[in-house]
Design a protein around this nucleic acid. Sequence first.
DNA 1: TTCTGTATTTAGAATAAATCTAATTTAAGA
DNA 2: TCTTAAATTAGATTTATTCTAAATACAGAA
Lengths: 133, 133
Amino acid sequence: MADELLQSRGVKPTPQRVVITQFLLDSHDHPTADEVLEGVKDSLPVSLSRATVYNTLNTLVEAGVVKAVSLEPGRTRYDANTIEHHHFVDTKTGKIIDIPWEKVSQLCQTLGPEYKIQDYQITFFGELAEPTP
Amino acid sequence: MADELLQSRGVKPTPQRVVITQFLLDSHDHPTADEVLEGVKDSLPVSLSRATVYNTLNTLVEAGVVKAVSLEPGRTRYDANTIEHHHFVDTKTGKIIDIPWEKVSQLCQTLGPEYKIQDYQITFFGELAEPTP
DNA sequence: TTCTGTATTTAGAATAAATCTAATTTAAGA
DNA sequence: TCTTAAATTAGATTTATTCTAAATACAGAA
C-alpha cells in the first residue's frame, strides 16, 4: 500500500519511509513529526532517528504524498488525506477534524484573474456542538 | 492613535506597548516578532527586550487589538488589520497580501449547525499575475 | 560475486522561535 | 511619601527543526 504509493511518486521505498507513510495513511489526527516518531519507532528493527523522520516528512511533502499544514504556531502537522478538504479546529479541545468542502472551489473564481491560485487552505476555529442523545 | 486604541481595549498604554502597536498599525506586511523588535527598538529611549515584544504581542492578541496568523511553519506573524479578511501568499516571492472577502461569511452557514464557528482563516497560495503595463 | 558510487540513515550538535525566571523598574493609589 | 501590583529586562531554557559528518545500504558496473 504505502510501498506502491511511494513507487508511483518516484520515492524509493526504504523501510523507514514505508512505515512513516503507512502511519500517516492510517492516522486521521494530523500528527506532528514527534508523534510520527513515537508512533512508528517500535515497528522498525533499527533505531529510527529524528532526522530521518524530518527528512522523510519533507521528502513526502515534496513528492505530494502528504500535505504539511500549519494550523497552530510552532508546530507543523502532516496529513495524508490528499483529497481536497479543509480543517476545523475545536478551540475547546484542540481537536482538528477534516472538512470536505467542494463548494469553496467555485468561490475561488470570484477572486479575479489576477490571482493564480495553486492551493488554498481554510481553517475554522470554533466549538463542535455536543451530539444530542 | 495607538494610545486610545489600547485604552479602549483595557490595555495599559505603556511606552513599549504604544510603539509596538503603532508599528503594527502602520505595517501592511504582517511582521514577525523579530521584525517588530527591529522596527521599533530605535524609537524607544530604553533598550527594548525581546521578552517584552513577545509579552506585548500576546497581550495585544488576547485583547483583540491584533491577530496572530500562522501562514508558514515556524513563525507567527501579526496583523493589525482587524477588519475581516484573509490572506494570499505569493509562492514566488513569499509576499503576503490581504484579501477582504465578505462573500465567504455567508458560505459558513452552509457548513451546518453542528459547527459553532468563532473564527476562520482562508489562506491562498499562488502567484500574483504581473501587472500589465 | 565483488567493487564502486550515490543515496539514505544516524546521533548528536547547532539554530531559531518562543517562553520562563528572577531581579529590577515603573507607576498608580493609599 | 509609601506600598504594592504590574510591567520590563537580560539571559537562561525549552521546543521544533535543520545541519553535519560519519556510517550504512544498495543498485549497477566490472
